[in-house]
Amino acid sequence: MGIHVVFGALADPTRLAIVERLLSSGDLTAGEIAAPFDISKPAISRHLKVLEEAGVVERRVERQFRVFRARREGFAQMEDWLEKSREFWNDSFDRLEKIFAEKGRPDAEDD
């Protein structure tokens, strides 16, 4: 599964809010997840399905309840991508600072 699937799943504000709730509250039933949202339970179920397919949440059944939790493993690709992006930008800014420092030297050539 590609990184675009995870970012795509989290791009929707409702799905992002669901994941944030799961991260802060731990395991929640589908009903507990749906409670603060002003959308239908079938719509919440569709959002949960997208998050499951992206691998960022998982479901288990306890008696008659569907219980969901955030999957740390589901965020691994995103973490890797963010780390590579951070390294790229840090290296780019370091090169830019070096260029500015060299241009500021009295013996540097003018363009």
Rank of each mutant, 00 (worst) to 15 (best):
L16N: 11
I3M: 07
A108I: 07
V19E: 11
R72K: 12
A108D: 09
E97A: 13
M1N: 11
A54I: 05
R21V: 07
R69D: 00
E83F: 12
L28D: 01
S25G: 01
R72C: 01
I18A: 04
S85N: 14
M1K: 13
I18W: 06
W89F: 15
I39K: 11
N90F: 15
T14G: 02
R66S: 14
D27V: 06
R46I: 00
S24K: 13
G26C: 04
V6A: 08
S45Q: 06
D111W: 12
R63I: 05
F37K: 03
S40A: 12
F93I: 14
G26V: 08
G74K: 03
E73A: 15
D94F: 04
K49D: 11
D110T: 10
R59F: 00
E102V: 02
K103M: 14
D110W: 05
E32L: 02
V50K: 14
G8F: 06
A54G: 13
E20Y: 00
R15W: 08
D107T: 13
P13R: 08
I39D: 02
H47Y: 08
V61P: 00
T14R: 07
F100D: 06
D27E: 13
A17Q: 09
D38P: 01
D111T: 07
L28Q: 08
P106M: 08
A30F: 00
R15H: 05
P36Q: 02
R105G: 02
S85Y: 15
R59G: 00
S25N: 03
V5S: 09
G31D: 04
M1P: 09
L51S: 04
E109V: 11
D27Y: 00
F75G: 08
G26D: 09
A9D: 07
R72G: 12
R21N: 06
A11C: 11
F88E: 09
L10Q: 11
M78A: 14
R15N: 14
